[in-house]
C-alpha cells in the first residue's frame, strides 16, 4: 500500500499501522515498520490489539433473521418506496457559511484597499521627491520631523515606513482646494529647529494665526504668531479656538503649523484614519472567526448523521 509522502510523519505512521494489520504493507515499508515495532513495545502491543479486534470482527457470527424476507407477488407489484430526499443543510449552517464567506471577503477587501492606499501614498511621496517640491534645504534637513508635523500634507506613515525622508509635496489635495497664496512668513518647525519655508509650492502659509500643535515627538511652531501649543497626536487633533487650522491641518496624525503642506490622500482612507480601518478589520476578523467556528461545529454535528 502506498503511503503518501505529503502526510505528516504521525499520519504516515498511522497509515502504515493500519495497512500492516490489513496485510497490505509490503516491501521496504513493511520491513521498516517491523523494525519500528521491534524498537517500540507500545507500538507492537497496539498492533497486536488492533489485529485481534480485526480478527474478532471478521468472526462475528451472522445474526439469524427473525423472519423470512422472501418477496411476494403483491410486494413486487406495489410501487417502489421513495428514498428520502437528501437533506438540505440546516438554516443555521447555511447562515453561518454565508456569514463566514461575507466576512472573509470584506476582510480581504479592507486589506487590499489598505495596501493600495499605502502604495499610492508612497508613490505620491516619491513623485514629490523627483519633482523637487520640497521645502528649502534648511527644512529638508529636518525633513522627518517636518513631514511628520505636516501630516495633513504628507502621508508620514508611508514615507517613513519606506525608510526615506518624508518629503512634503504639493500635489493638489481635495482637502485643501482653496488654500491661500504663499506667504513668505510661514515657517515650519521640527524638533525645536525652526526653518523658514520659502517655496510656494510646498509650504503655503495660512493667513490666519494657527495653533502650533505637538504631535507625538514633534513640535511645530507656527510663526509669526505663536499661540499656546496643542497636544494631539491622534487623528482627531483639533485646535480649540483656531478654526483656520481646519481639517487638512489635522489629518493623518499630523498637525499643520504655520505652514500648510498640501498633499493628496485618498479621501475615504485618511479621513477616518488608519485606526478606524484597523478597528473595522478587527471587527470583521472577529465575525469571520465566529462564523467559521460555527460552520465547523454545525458541519461536524451534521456529519455525524447520515
Amino acid at each position: 500500500m502506498e503511503i503518501r509522502s505529503w502526510l505528516s510523519p504521525r499520519h504516515r505512521q498511522r497509515n502504515r499501522l493500519h495497512a500492516y494489520i490489513e496485510g497490505a504493507l509490503e516491501g521496504a515499508e513493511r520491513t521498516q515498520f517491523e523494525a519500528a515495532m521491534a524498537r517500540d513495545p507500545a507500538l507492537a502491543r497496539e498492533v497486536g490489539e488492533l489485529r485481534a479486534i480485526r480478527l474478532a470482527a471478521r468472526e462475528l457470527p451472522e445474526i439469524e433473521a427473525p423472519r423470512s424476507f422472501r418477496l411476494t407477488a403483491a410486494m413486487v407489484a406495489a410501487p417502489a418506496r421513495q428514498a428520502p430526499a437528501p437533506r438540505r443543510a440546516p438554516v443555521a449552517l447555511r447562515l453561518a457559511q454565508g456569514a463566514a464567506a461575507l466576512s472573509v471577503f470584506a476582510l480581504a477587501v479592507t486589506f487590499v484597499a489598505g495596501a493600495v492606499d499605502n502604495e499610492r501614498a508612497a508613490d505620491t511621496a516619491a513623485s514629490g521627491e523627483s519633482a523637487s517640491l520640497a521645502v528649502e534645504d534648511a527644512t529638508t534637513k529636518q525633513a522627518p520631523a517636518a513631514a511628520a508635523a505636516s501630516g495633513g500634507a504628507t502621508n508620514s506613515t508611508a514615507a517613513t515606513a519606506e525608510g526615506r525622508p518624508p518629503v512634503a509635496t504639493s500635489v493638489p489635495s481635495p482637502f485643501a482646494p482653496t488654500l491661500p497664496p504663499y506667504s513668505p512668513t510661514s515657517s515650519v518647525s521640527g524638533q525645536g529647529v525652526t526653518a523658514t519655508a520659502e517655496t510656494p509650492a510646498t509650504a503655503v502659509a495660512s493667513p490666519t494665526p494657527r495653533a502650533p500643535a505637538t504631535g507625538p515627538g514633534e513640535a511645530v511652531t507656527a510663526m509669526p504668531t505663536p499661540v499656546p501649543p496643542l497636544t494631539g497626536g491622534g487623528d482627531a487633533a483639533t485646535v480649540p479656538g483656531t478654526p483656520s487650522t481646519s481639517a487638512y491641518g489635522t489629518r493623518d496624525g499630523g498637525v499643520t503649523g504655520g505652514a500648510t503642506i498640501t498633499q493628496s490622500a485618498p479621501a475615504g482612507a485618511d479621513k477616518d484614519g488608519p485606526g478606524t480601518m484597523r478597528l473595522a478589520q478587527a471587527g470583521l476578523a472577529a465575525v469571520a472567526v465566529l462564523a467559521i467556528g460555527a460552520t465547523i461545529v454545525l458541519s461536524l454535528r451534521r456529519r455525524r448523521e447520515p
Binding site: E62, I63, A65, P66, S68, F69, R70, L71, A73
Partner: peptide, 16 residues
C-alpha cells in the same frame, strides 16, 4: 420470483 427467493434464502442472514 421463486428463483429470486432462493437468493433471498441464501443471503437474508447476511443482509439482516
Amino acid at each position: 420470483l421463486d428463483a429470486f427467493n432462493r437468493l433471498v434464502d441464501r443471503y437474508q442472514g447476511s443482509v439482516y
